[in-house]
């Protein structure tokens, strides 16, 4: 199966939040129904953060300009990185790449350790206390298996979200980048083509990465790399200790305090 990807074109996004609703509807993710559940922030962004039952949000980076506020929208959901920190941190193998390149969590294997939560450079996976499991976007694998695009893409009314095989999405993104640059958006950049060995969501940030709140050159945290060494290192350390003590035990066999021939050790 070919790798697939979503292409998000921020220059076409109106932040209608249809993708947020579609995601909740398709994946049966309930929303809080209590009045004033979310703190009033004076922003149109709602909710403020991803959550165990909110797998996608459109973020509103608001910048004061002479003509008023300029909104820089961005699609915030799992980036489905090829070099995925969450997958490397997961101790149970619950997080893995599927054939189409998406990063998914096998809930049967998830033990709720939250290592992925604390490893993702984008803070995407979220822990659900009630079930002691972690959740995030799975790029609607059930829909993809039936030849359909992810729920968020299917509902986008402006064409800001498109879906297809990854090389085609990268090509479309490149074409669109040339178009917006020609139209005057000289700060426009692509994101996700090469970052973390290639993501499965490609972004066009027409006002530049930082303006849209994207992290330039994201990395798998160095501590994860160190941490991965711990298991082989601990195995080696314990084997060496057992080995050393075993040799010592053999050397001490037959020891008799009263009759042993004690000699001074050479210093």
């Amino acid at each position: 199966m070919a790798e697939t990807a979503i292409f998000y074109d921020a220059s076409k996004c109106t932040a209608c939040k249809g993708c947020q609703v579609a995601c909740k509807q398709w994946n049966q993710l309930s929303s809080p129904l209590t009045a004033d559940e979310f703190e009033f922030t004076k922003s149109y962004q709602s909710p403020l953060e991803l959550a165990d039952k909110t797998w996608i949000i459109i973020t509103f980076a608001e910048v004061d300009q002479d003509i008023g506020i300029e909104w820089n929208f961005m699609r915030n959901a799992c980036f489905h990185c090829t070099d995925a920190a969450c997958e490397q941190a997961c101790p149970t193998g619950a997080i893995s790449h599927v054939e189409n390149g998406a990063v998914v969590i096998d809930q049967e294997k998830c033990i709720g350790c939250r290592y992925c939560v604390n490893s993702c450079p984008f803070g995407v996976p979220k822990w659900r206390e009630a079930e002691n499991k972690t959740f995030k976007c799975w790029l609607c694998q059930d829909r993809q298996a039936n030849g359909r695009s992810p729920g968020c893409v299917g509902t986008c009314p402006t064409g800001a979200l498109t879906f297809g095989e990854r090389p085609a999405m990268v090509a479309a993104a490149q074409t669109r980048l040339d178009e917006v640059k020609a139209a005057g958006s000289d700060k426009a950049e692509l994101y996700g083509v090469d970052e973390l060995d290639g993501m499965h969501v490609i972004f066009l940030a027409h006002r530049g990465l930082e303006a849209h709140g994207l992290i330039r050159d994201p990395q798998v945290p160095g501590s994860i790399k160190f941490w991965q060494l711990m298991k082989p290192l601990s195995g080696l350390a314990f084997a060496a200790t057992f080995g050393g003590l075993g040799i010592s035990f053999l050397a001490s066999m037959g020891y008799d305090r009263d009759s042993n021939n004690v000699e001074e050790v050479e210093e």
Partner: peptide
Amino acid sequence: LFNPKKVH
């Protein structure tokens, strides 16, 4: 530890 019979 490795030669208790000879070391005092």
